[in-house]
Design a protein around this nucleic acid. Structure first.
Lengths: 157, 157
DNA sequence: TATTGTTATACTCTATAACTATA
DNA sequence: TATAGTTATAGAGTATAACAATA
């Protein structure tokens, strides 16, 4: 169920021929590698992603960023708090109880480092993917995600 | 961070162009869909996978199946216990403290149902993947997984 | 009052360590 | 004593519900 190790033994793997499970195994392995890459910055993938989202959408409200990241507000809060405590964020009150998030100078530096860590991870992943297949693969994964999310399943085309 | 919902808003998604994150999002969506498909059988993906592994390797020892599934022995135990309590498994003592697992008649029936649920899930996934790309994609994911697992990272070719 | 953020909390999955039992 | 399995437990990630604060 946890996929780091290579297949090892000679016993039959009924899941190996399924795209769904190779997806999961690849995903877990990739996230573990990313976590390792980010460890030197003292961030986990969630915190680092948040930083990238804020950097790409400065001044946007916390709840909008949360929706874009597909994170529950309750789970986003500790990440925002940590980045803010680390001095990476500016939080300015918006309308209602809204808070607009943006990067501090310090945050911008950290964001640049995070960006490079993500790029290294991406390079490691795509090393084996032919360049002309990469965009196609991303698009297929996007479609798979959208299809799988649909609640009922199996409707016509 | 949890990927069910479609992208929704007009704010920039710095992760959308990365293969690594589309992998993760697709994987989570696919596992959620599978969990839904399996719910009618009273099994979660882990339990169902275990059943498939035992069905494909009858009489093999529990620890070997655990290694093939990349599961920690401690996490495998409750799954085996549940399947055994449900009457799906036969457990016969092997050498040492080893236990050889195999399917009961009842287990074989359940395994067949699980197999069909996995097949439905796989069909939903691959609906958008051109048939001639499927094997290639599985192989690429396998390579990505192996590359990402390698501890150091970024070594020469 | 509607929206946004915060707190508390619970559930699942995974990991580690210590213990038990058997060739 | 080496191996296989079990138990207890801890941590991460994610989910829900209730609450607080502000236009």
């Amino acid at each position: 169920m946890t996929p780091p190790e290579p297949p090892d033994l000679s016993i039959s793997d009924p899941l190996g021929a399924m795209l769904g499970f190779q997806l999961r195994r690849a995903s877990v392995a990739v996230m573990m590698a990313l976590a390792e890459e980010l460890a030197t910055l003292g961030l986990n993938p969630g915190e680092a992603s948040l930083l990238l989202f804020i950097g790409a959408n400065e001044g946007v409200t916390q709840s909008d960023i949360g929706r874009a990241m597909r994170a529950q507000p309750a789970n986003l809060q500790p990440l925002v708090h940590k980045l803010w405590q680390a001095g990476a964020l500016d939080r300015v009150a918006g309308k209602g109880r809204a808070i607009a998030l943006s990067l501090s100078d310090e945050g911008r530096v950290l964001c640049e480092k995070v960006s490079r860590a993500f790029a290294r991870n991406e390079a490691r992943i795509t090393r084996r993917v032919p360049a002309e297949r990469r965009a196609e693969m991303i698009e297929l994964l996007r479609l798979i995600c959208m299809d799988a999310c649909r609640p009922g399943g199996r409707e016509t085309e």
